[in-house]
Simulated assay, not measured.
Amino acid sequence: MDARALAALAANPGCRRRALLDGAGVPKAALAESLGVPSGFGQSQFAFMRGHAFEARVTRDGGAELLRLTHACLGGGPEPAPGDARTPDLSAAGPEGRVARTALALREAADAGAWTLLDHPMLALDVAGTPAFLEPDAVVVAPDGTWTVVEIKSFPMIDGAADPAKVGAAARQAAVYALALADVAAGLDPAPTVRDRVLLVCPKDFSNLPTAAAVDIRKQLSVTRRQLARLDRVEDIAASLPPGTTFDVTRPAAELTAAVDAVPATYAPECLAACELAFHCRARSRARGEVTALGRPLRAELGALSTVPQALAAARGEAGDPEDPAVAALRRAGALRAEALAGRSA
C-alpha cells in the first residue's frame, strides 16, 4: 500500500474489496483489463516524465530552492544559505532498512539544529495490522525542530492558486505521510513537532519554475486517522472468502469476476477518480439498484432505503414506514410530481 492507496481507503473505509486487493498487492489496472472493464485510470507517460523532470529541478543543488520555498512559506529559523543544508544519504537494503535509515537521519537532524532535507525518505505506518511503506517526495527538518512534509506536484499553480480537487487529493496523501512521520517523532525525547501544514510545490503559472504554498491538513489528518482505524484487517477479509479464491489476472474473466464479487465493495461516484476497478463496481452497483451509485449525500438522506426500487416504492406509497422522515419526504415529493405532471397534461 502506498500513500495514494491509503488516502483512497481513508476516503472510503467501508470498501473491503479495495482494502484486500491493495493489501495483497493485486495490480488493479491489470485486473480491470482482465475483467473486460479497463479503467484508463492513472497518469500518462508524458505527465509522469514532466513530473519527474520538475521534481528533479526542485531538489537539485542540495535542495536549495526547496528549502528557500519552505522558509518563505513556513519559516522555521534563519534563512537557509546555499550549500549549508544537510542532505543525508538514505540508501539501505530493502524497505525495512530504508525505514531504519530514515529514522536515524531524522534523529540526527533533530539534534543538529540545522536545515536538513530528506529526499524520498521511507516511512512505515501500521494499517489494520499490516505495515505500509510510504515514500514522500521530501521531508524538511528546520532549525527550530519542526518537521514538514513536502509534496511536489506537476499541476500548475496559476496566480497563486491550483485546482482545488488536485490540491485536496495532495492534502489527503500528505496526511498519510504526516501520520507516519508523527510515529517517528513520538519515539524521540523531546518529540519534535510535525507540522499540520504541508508544503505544496507546483510549477508557477505556465512555466517550469517552482512556486509553493502551505496547505493546512488538520482536517485531513483527523479524518484519515479515524478512517484508517476503522479498516478491517486484511487477513480477516481474506478468511471470509471461499477456499481457492484467486485474483491472478491471467485467469479467465468469469473466474476473476466471481472472485472479485465475493469481496464486498462500497461504490460511490468519487471512486471514479481514485480506483481502477471503479467501472466494474459501478456496473455492479447499478445492476443492484444501490442508491450509493447516485452519491453519498443522497444515500445519507434516504436512511434505511438503500436501493432505488425501495425509494421509488416509498415515493408511490407502496412501502416504507410513514413515520420515517425519508419516506414522508419521498411521498411528498411523489405527490408534488404527480400534481405537476397532471397540470402539464391538462
Score class of each variant (00 low, 15 high):
residue 183 D to Y: 03
residue 25 G to N: 07
residue 237 I to A: 03
residue 126 D to F: 00
residue 325 P to E: 06
residue 3 A to W: 00
residue 130 T to R: 14
residue 270 E to H: 10
residue 102 T to D: 06
residue 259 A to L: 06
residue 13 P to Q: 03
residue 127 V to I: 14
residue 317 G to P: 00
residue 249 V to C: 10
residue 276 E to M: 06
residue 284 R to M: 11
residue 130 T to G: 08
residue 14 G to N: 06
residue 256 L to I: 06
residue 324 D to T: 05
residue 36 G to N: 06
residue 288 R to V: 08
residue 274 A to Q: 10
residue 30 A to N: 08
residue 298 L to I: 04
residue 58 V to A: 00
residue 267 Y to G: 01
residue 96 E to D: 15
residue 295 G to R: 03
residue 305 L to R: 07
residue 31 L to D: 01
residue 214 A to Q: 08
residue 118 L to T: 06
residue 60 R to N: 09
residue 276 E to A: 15
residue 33 E to K: 11
residue 77 G to V: 07
residue 10 A to V: 12
residue 228 L to G: 02
residue 101 R to C: 11
residue 247 F to G: 01
residue 338 A to R: 15
residue 210 P to L: 08
residue 224 T to Q: 06
residue 22 D to F: 13
residue 303 G to R: 05
residue 140 V to S: 01
residue 133 F to D: 09
residue 7 A to D: 02
residue 88 P to M: 06
residue 69 L to E: 07
residue 272 L to F: 03
residue 12 N to T: 14
residue 1 M to R: 06
residue 299 R to F: 13
residue 214 A to K: 05
residue 286 R to G: 14
residue 274 A to M: 11
residue 324 D to M: 09
residue 308 V to P: 05
residue 65 E to C: 12
residue 31 L to W: 02
residue 179 L to P: 01
residue 126 D to W: 01
residue 18 R to Y: 08
residue 223 V to Q: 12
residue 27 P to D: 12
residue 126 D to M: 08
residue 78 P to M: 11
residue 295 G to P: 02
residue 249 V to H: 01
residue 1 M to V: 12
residue 195 R to G: 09
residue 233 R to Q: 09
residue 17 R to T: 08
residue 42 G to F: 02
residue 159 D to R: 15
residue 181 L to P: 04
residue 139 V to L: 05
residue 37 V to T: 15
residue 127 V to E: 07
residue 42 G to I: 08
residue 129 G to L: 10
residue 174 A to R: 03
residue 265 A to Q: 12
residue 325 P to L: 13
residue 234 V to C: 06
residue 198 V to P: 04
residue 73 C to E: 13
residue 125 L to T: 03
residue 221 L to H: 01
residue 300 A to W: 13
residue 287 A to Q: 10
residue 226 R to W: 04
residue 2 D to E: 10
residue 4 R to M: 14
residue 61 D to M: 12
residue 89 D to L: 07
residue 64 A to Y: 00
residue 256 L to M: 07
residue 222 S to D: 12
residue 172 R to H: 13
residue 84 D to A: 15
residue 328 A to F: 05
residue 148 T to I: 14
residue 315 A to M: 12
residue 86 R to T: 10
residue 101 R to D: 09
residue 339 E to Q: 14
residue 179 L to K: 00
residue 297 P to H: 03
residue 69 L to N: 05
residue 311 A to F: 04
residue 186 A to C: 08
residue 194 V to G: 02
residue 194 V to H: 03
residue 151 E to V: 14
residue 209 L to Q: 15
residue 123 L to P: 04
residue 120 H to C: 11
